[in-house]
Design a binder for these strands. Structure first.
Lengths: 142, 142
DNA sequence: TTGTTGTAGTTAACGCGTTAATTACACGAC
DNA sequence: GTCGTGTAATTAACGCGTTAACTACAACAA
């Protein structure tokens, strides 16, 4: 059965939901001149340590061409460092730099406030339920 | 509380879920050289009749600058027509053209198959539940 | 060593998202 | 009428998503 209106269309609903949530985080990121994708890359590097580009792209949910651009931008601002892997001249290893760690630390409190507010307004139980459904949808379709 | 891993991060989960779902529709749209956003615009025009640009952008969930580009592309392919509103030289009225309607009709069966498959795999009950949660999240945050 | 195949990363081209600035027009105050 | 304000749409600038093509290197076979 086709969705009879856009509110009940799954792609639309997912789009709007994401817009609504990101609308809360965007001002914070913009204030520090970091894009959403750059922020995801920094977080992965912060949490997972030095990582090769392919794994980084995968974990940050960024496509390889985008990652190339993001690396260039973050390296230019000294947020990360980029080195060739020993033993394999094709691979590239990315590492977070002090300035990058500092940015993560600076934004974490604000992130927590926003996330807590969303959880409070939406309800802890329902948030867990939503995350479960999304996880299941992702696993089922991918 | 901050999400401890990206799978339980709401923005990430919404992103992945949307990617997973759109991955099913994308080949269909690509085969007809229509982008996802162009398709949304066409659907709105098909369902709602002649509409002014602002309302169209709103209903198709497209920002005004994007709509300008989309209109240009769709008009170039004779999928829609673009006219100034009578009585107000600023407003623009968009109307679907025969070629546009034909595309909608041509793709609808395939859309239905894909949507049904998703619903079958994910479960009707859970899909409704997911849509309810998303709708609530959207209303709560926007 | 040379050639083939495969993989990691980059580049290119095009479209959309986002924000800000700008143009064109409407409307009311004066 | 003209000026100022507000609104609709467009344009501009930059970054990312997407696909395809390309480069550089590795691995292996002959």
């Amino acid at each position: 059965m086709l969705p009879e209106n856009t509110r009940r269309s799954l792609p639309m609903a997912l789009l709007h939901a994401r817009e609504a949530v990101m609308g809360r985080f965007r001002p914070m990121l913009a204030a520090h001149d970091v894009t959403e994708q750059q922020w995801r890359v920094l977080r992965v590097l912060s949490e997972a340590g030095p990582v090769e580009a392919t794994e980084l792209a995968d974990r940050a949910s960024v496509l390889p061409p985008s990652l190339t651009r993001i690396i260039k931008a973050l390296e230019g601002r000294k947020f990360i460092t980029r080195n060739k892997a020993e033993g394999d001249g094709r691979r590239v290893v990315l590492t977070i730099a002090p300035a990058g760690s500092a940015l993560i630390d600076a934004l974490s409190p604000e992130r927590r406030v926003i996330y807590d507010d969303i959880e409070k307004r939406f309800g802890h139980e329902r948030l867990e339920q939503l995350l479960d459904l999304l996880e299941s949808l992702i696993d089922g379709e991918s």
